[in-house]
Write a protein that binds this DNA or RNA. Structure first.
Lengths: 333, 333
DNA sequence: TTGTACGCGTTATCAG
DNA sequence: CTGATAACGCGTACAA
């Protein structure tokens, strides 16, 4: 009860050697009688193996690092939930790399991994440039990347076909007789922004819907504030009969603008979001949204990582999930 | 480039002893010439000090553990943001204790801290019983608790006067002429549930507003789903001219029910939330909400913890923040 | 089956 | 100012 018990104290208390204590802890050979005494001693002293010493010896930290650009985004939150659900059944702890947004921070962070505080890394970079790609290449730690995998990087990857998602949105709009579709996107400089942009163009072509320079707005961020800020007036929105938004937050902002201007969301103008977050059920009208399976992506990423840490010789794997559309009131006539 | 460089390799490369390398790294006495060569060697080899070895020697992990019941709640998210903002300027990493909801998990978790993987703990238990209180008492790690501090526990604590917040809500309603106030609360078994309950009763008395058995609903959870589930019909809500909700999520659920029943939120029935999350700005009408300063609580908690880890002799400190009310459209006539 | 002894990579003490 | 060396607590050959 006084000092922090070490394996040595436990050994003395149980009248055995440290080796025996270690064996009992790590579940190997020990005579039942011995084991019993050791366990008793452990219990009495309230002993817990020191993780630093263990890590140093075993060369493994039993920690996995999670590295996101924006902790605040609900989509990332869902990813995290999925990841932690898988990890809770493992021996690994989750360490959070607190908001690595700019390139410099990411670089510092990735290099910091060299200090060995994590056995694995799950990363979802919102932007990828030469430098980050280079860093990723030299990384010693088993890594799985969630999102768009840069060319030439050979690591495990789980992604979602967001283009397909936008196609589903456009298809749904076309089916319900909408003709003038706008797209409110996040920054084109980001990976999601790029993919969604291409997806929108392709989908509009596929369904032979007209598109012009006004059809797409790029916001400064994937947030409601950016939407309210970026979509100056409802007049812009009125030129269309349907708005696809790059995520649910943006959709919420757009809906707010519409409602504030007495436009009936659904009948007048359809709004579709992406991510299918909880937000969609709460909004009035409820939000039609493309489910990008964030939580599932998190789970799969964690599983891939566990497998790889278990067997480094595995070939790089690539899992691409298919989105689905959840139709609610905001796109109903 | 081949193997993971150790301090020994760096020393050899620089033609000095490991001690000198260590000194350079830890920023102590070294002749400029020596320092320069060491730094060069570090650079060339891409050396990073091994954190496990360092932790073992220094008896400090440079990690802080964050322990919440529900990672999904936006209020906790704000806490986390505040915490990580403070921590990013320190040497500490943040490790997440993935959703410790039930008593058993919390117990396991707190005991696990004995293994020394964290130098400090920030915990916000949603329930506190005998067992958890006991565990908290025996905790060796510097800890700050966010929320209601159980009797007899002598640790740093940061809390928010949520009762005062509810009083502000009631005052605002009274001022604007509302008379029949309902309160949609979370589970009474939780700390926040208890405090809010008492606060509501007290506030209603103070402002001489009538209250009866129907005035309070207890939900199964602090979520929108629970609200939509628990508030069976709009008929219940129609009995009142104003609804105070235990958080913004619940408020969102209540607003949805009202809107779906063609009740004009604001003029017909006022709705007030708590937490003042981003959600409030997005909803239509925008949500009047009690700001519980979650992000600030997180920042303060982190600061208190850093101070305490720096000086264990500090007396237990208690910081109680005052809420404020943010009036938006949902409570306007 | 059990015990002894060494090394994991650092930091810190103590001579030089 | 610098270098050799003893810990830190644990796992595991190897010997018994």
């Amino acid at each position: 009860m006084g000092e922090k018990p070490t394996i040595g104290l436990v050994a003395k208390r149980a009248g055995v050697s440290v080796a025996s204590v270690s064996r009992v802890i790590n579940g190997t050979l020990a005579r039942p009688a011995t084991e019993k005494r050791v366990r008793a001693a452990i219990e009495e002293l309230g002993y817990h193996p020191n993780s630093a010493a263990r890590a140093l010896k075993v060369q493994a930290s039993e920690q996995i690092c999670l590295s996101f650009a924006d902790v605040g985004n609900p989509a990332y939150l869902a990813l995290t939930r999925g990841i932690s659900r898988v990890l809770r059944d493992s021996k690994y702890r989750l360490v959070l790399s607190t908001s690595v947004s700019n390139e410099k921070e990411i670089a510092q962070h990735l290099q910091g991994l060299g200090s060995g505080y994590a056995d694995g890394l799950i990363i979802s970079p919102i932007v990828t440039n030469e430098k980050i790609t280079g860093l990723l290449k030299e990384l010693r730690v088993p890594t799985v990347l969630i999102g768009t995998l840069p060319q030439g990087i050979k690591i495990d990857n789980v992604s979602i076909d967001s283009s397909k998602g936008i196609e589903m949105a456009v298809a749904h709009l076309k089916e319900t007789g909408r003709k003038k579709v706008a797209f409110v996107n996040g920054p084109l400089a980001t990976n999601p922004g790029k993919r969604r942009y291409k997806g929108f163009i392709a989908a509009m072509e596929k369904y032979k819907l007209k598109i012009n320079d006004d059809s797409i707005i790029f916001l400064s961020d994937f947030t409601s504030e950016a939407a309210i800020e970026g979509v100056k007036s409802a007049n812009f929105l009125k030129k269309f009969d349907s708005i696809i938004c790059a995520n649910d937050l943006i959709a919420a902002g757009v809906i707010k603008i519409l409602l504030d201007n007495k436009i009936i969301v659904g009948p007048d103008i359809a709004v579709i979001g992406m991510d299918n977050t909880e937000l969609g059920k709460i909004l009035s009208p409820s939000l039609t949204s493309i489910d990008l399976r964030a939580e599932q992506r998190g789970e799969i990423a964690a599983q891939l990582l566990l497998e790889r840490m278990n067997d480094a010789t595995l070939p790089p794997r690539k899992v691409e999930l298919k989105p689905s559309i959840v139709i609610r009131d905001s796109s109903q006539l």
